[in-house]
Write a protein that binds this DNA or RNA. Sequence first.
DNA 1: CTGAAAGCGCTTACAG
DNA 2: CTGAAAGCGCTTACAG
Lengths: 339, 339
Amino acid sequence: MAERVTIGDLAQRLGLSKASVSYALNGRPGVSAQTRARVLALARELQWYPSSSARVLSGARTGVVGLVLSRDPELLGTEPYYMLVLSGIESALIDADYGLLLRMVGSEPGRDLAVYERWAGEGRVDGVMLFDQRRDDPRIPLVRHLGLPAVLNGAAEPGSALRAVVPDEHGDANQVVEHLAGLGHRRVAYLSGPSGLLHEERRDLLVRAAAARTGMVVETVEGDYTMGTAERLVTERLRRGPGPTAWVASNDVMALGAVRAAVREGVDVPGRVSVVSWDDSLLCEIGAPPVTALDRHPRDFGRRCAQALLAEIAGDPGDDAVPPPSVLRVRASTGPARP
Amino acid sequence: MAERVTIGDLAQRLGLSKASVSYALNGRPGVSAQTRARVLALARELQWYPSSSARVLSGARTGVVGLVLSRDPELLGTEPYYMLVLSGIESALIDADYGLLLRMVGSEPGRDLAVYERWAGEGRVDGVMLFDQRRDDPRIPLVRHLGLPAVLNGAAEPGSALRAVVPDEHGDANQVVEHLAGLGHRRVAYLSGPSGLLHEERRDLLVRAAAARTGMVVETVEGDYTMGTAERLVTERLRRGPGPTAWVASNDVMALGAVRAAVREGVDVPGRVSVVSWDDSLLCEIGAPPVTALDRHPRDFGRRCAQALLAEIAGDPGDDAVPPPSVLRVRASTGPARP
DNA sequence: CTGAAAGCGCTTACAG
DNA sequence: CTGAAAGCGCTTACAG
């Protein structure tokens, strides 16, 4: 068991005051270059590390940001999206020498609020990233009240006054709709995630707006991001016929569910029904048929979220960040609408 | 910006000493039931939270455990395994009111060591979970030297003296081999992950031992857990023929790569070649054909790892944990060996 | 049952 | 350029 080496130990060994050692270690004026070198050498030799709690207690930042994921853990395991976002976040944090405190609380709404409150109260994090924004999201007033720096992913509701990383959902919807319109589709179904999520409402709206411009009719079916539910819903809709000739699913897992439903019902993809996923992933690549999908660059998105939060923490002014345009990866699941 | 409420504020408002307030808050003897109630009520009213840095500085635990993931981020995004393990870890930590500090460092060996050193030196975590054990793993002497509580996932090397969560790899290998033997396969290829990983070496050995008992011949091909490499290696081997009639891939992504290689080469699965994955996931379910896979209960495994670490931190004696037996999910990718 | 005091390991004005 | 001292918010013997 290694005994902790403290600044006091260094001071004693070198015959200096703790203050001088502290100044030397932190690169502040007040010590000669020579003294500084001696201090740094000994610190290195004894493998001294500053106690983070002592530092934080005297006013320093924690060097940690928090992320609460409020989705069903089972879902988090199946959707590659979040792991990619996480790795993007990490890549930015590593550069800034920051750590990530991660919490998964399940999908019951409100369970996350207590976590932010505690993190702020206990002084555990310098800021948080807010994912999966909801209508009238209670986290927005909460972090404001707590004085906790935060970044929203996705456009902020008017008046939220939080920094945000805003994907070009308008462009995303246009790409998807134009691809389908170009193939002659006139009736499309949007298989959404849970309706409380703001980005779902926006996507639905934007798909409808883009569709309206091309004279396309849209119906929305509310899913829950799981394959099972998607499969059931799409099956029901197919049986009810006459249905849309194309399905746009809000994530990759549901897109696969849609394909599966069609295949089971003997409906050829893309012969009679086309399927597009709003998220790209390995799942889409290996699907049978492989699924046309929107690559929204999740790693890059995560990276920008973290960078925006770090800027916020540092007090840097800055506009909302805008990730690079998504790319539609056209695969075999989309084809001409049946005449 | 909420000003921090301290124990001193509570004491002042109540006309008590800070000590009494502290005793009351921590449920220690030394205060009357009535005083305690008054303190707790005010603390709640003012939304007081203990400063974690102050607590840690006076000797308390951090309430945080660390996990360093040393795989390529791209890979972490495609393999569902780690997210499931993560969610299992979280489920145990939530019960114990612990947080998880997560770090992804990429796959260059040794980059993780500096992280453990810093975490220990800075006093950021109470312990760490060590994944992906390697031969002569330098982390084992390191955490020992640092006095950092740790838990290994996977059987410990002799002499490591660390608590471990030990999956029944012997049983796993038997299940896979027996399934294939039962289908009449006599020549099998094991598509492994990188050879430095201890569990890969063990799997290879155990597959060979199990195979030997049934008179089966095994050849090993070293992959890197990615689909691209797996596809290339399997393609090469298929072209070289005459090859094994069954492939066992060490993860789901490589299994999918093997299937894809076979399909592209016009080799029917499972007509001419069977494929088994050592990990189950949605990828295996939706493969074409769906892939027979070993469900090793990753969430449960993660949960047990975290529980073992918490026990270690608490100083509870305890044996190595053993997860429940894996279940082989037989799907369409395995069939009788071609006569 | 309660209070005054020291200590955890840092940082930071303030004197010299 | 250097040192003695106070302070961050807790906990914990030690007196009363």
